[in-house]
Design a protein around this nucleic acid. Structure first.
Lengths: 192, 192
DNA sequence: GAAGTAAGCGGACCGTCGGTCCGTATGGTG
DNA sequence: CACCATACGGACCGACGGTCCGCTTACTTC
């Protein structure tokens, strides 16, 4: 099935440069104040290049987040338990939330930028969708009586970048992971 | 205590006109695509007037939402139970969430516009703050073991305008209120 | 009712930003 | 080497939030 034409060398180089530049800018100036003009300039690339490569702001942020989320994704579908398959849904869900918390706390700025960019129609964002589907599936097994889709959204709302930042500023990572497990337990019922 | 100078007649008239225009535009074109230029034009008022009166976009949306939320606020502090004081926190919290759901479903567009406008620093928005404090207080009574502040944010996330719209499009108001109670119950424990 | 003044008005103006367009350059290929 | 699809870059555009300032107007005082 189609190798569908190799990406040209300069194109590949530029894509790396743009991603790199965006990441740097995001780390320096926090999540906001990172316009695509600046990214293009920092990557030493024309603005048009950025848009041709990533479509729009949301596309760029998505690509960036995807880079950071790829290990998580692989861990879910084929990694060892409890993140991967092979344990009861309860454990797997908790493991997933922990992993997500890890990802979120390590990349707050990026997450914030991504959220902002996808604000319009966030329920169609592929990354959000994937995470939501995973949660929903596990939840449906563990608590078939609940509206899994709705609860899935509620659970994911705990990883709202602003909330993560807010909680981390006042209680640190420990508070976030702790509260996270409390909330999850509330939905899953007592820890057996 | 200061009567601090009565608002001039034309100023009051203009404020009403702006609020009215904003509301209309919001109802016609959905939540987005309502720029302050358009509001000013529709109110037959200069743009500067809008900003002098409301400070910025967030201020206007807040004022608009405040109009709709005033009955709820009064109901909380001095209305009859179960919304007002006089019943156990459990009932009061559920009643509050129901009332909020009612407000939200009746004003999705406004809520969305407000959320968007306050996206930057939503935890400082007075309305959000008020609702959050109410929830937190009740929750701290009913479930002193939980991180009430965090759970408060989680509960309020269920009224995210996009989520409300999403759920209403696929299940209607009934689904929202139903799921809402399920989630709330999960936090509060079984209905005694 | 005239005069004085603080409050209010409006809309031109500004900077920023996401996104588009198109003439030009260049890497791959036969 | 010649050809062409692919990609490049940056000028350009429209929209928007917000500011500014010279002019107007509603109230007050006598």
């Amino acid at each position: 099935m189609g190798a569908q034409r190799q990406e040209r060398a300069d194109a590949a180089r530029n894509r790396r440069a743009v991603l790199q530049a965006a990441e740097t800018l995001l780390a320096e100036n926090g999540f906001d104040h990172v316009s695509l003009d600046k990214v293009a300039a920092a990557a030493d690339v024309g603005k048009g290049t950025v848009f041709r490569r990533f479509g729009n702001r949301a596309g760029l942020m998505r690509a960036l987040l995807e880079e950071r989320a790829v290990m998580l994704s692989e861990g879910i579908v084929s990694g060892p338990p409890p993140l991967g398959p092979g344990v009861p849904p309860r454990e797997r869900l908790l493991a997933f939330l922990d992993a997500l918390a890890d990802l979120a706390t390590r990349n707050v700025a990026l997450l914030a930028a991504h959220d902002r960019a996808c604000a319009e129609d966030k329920f169609s964002d592929p990354i959000y969708l994937r995470w939501h589907r995973h949660i929903t599936t596990l939840l449906a097994e563990a608590r078939p009586d609940l509206d899994a889709e709705f609860v899935g959204h509620t659970l994911l709302s705990m990883f709202d970048a602003d909330l993560v930042r807010h909680v981390m500023n006042d209680g640190g990572v420990a508070r976030l992971t702790g509260s996270l497990r409390d909330v999850a337990s509330a939905f899953l019922g007592a820890p057996r």
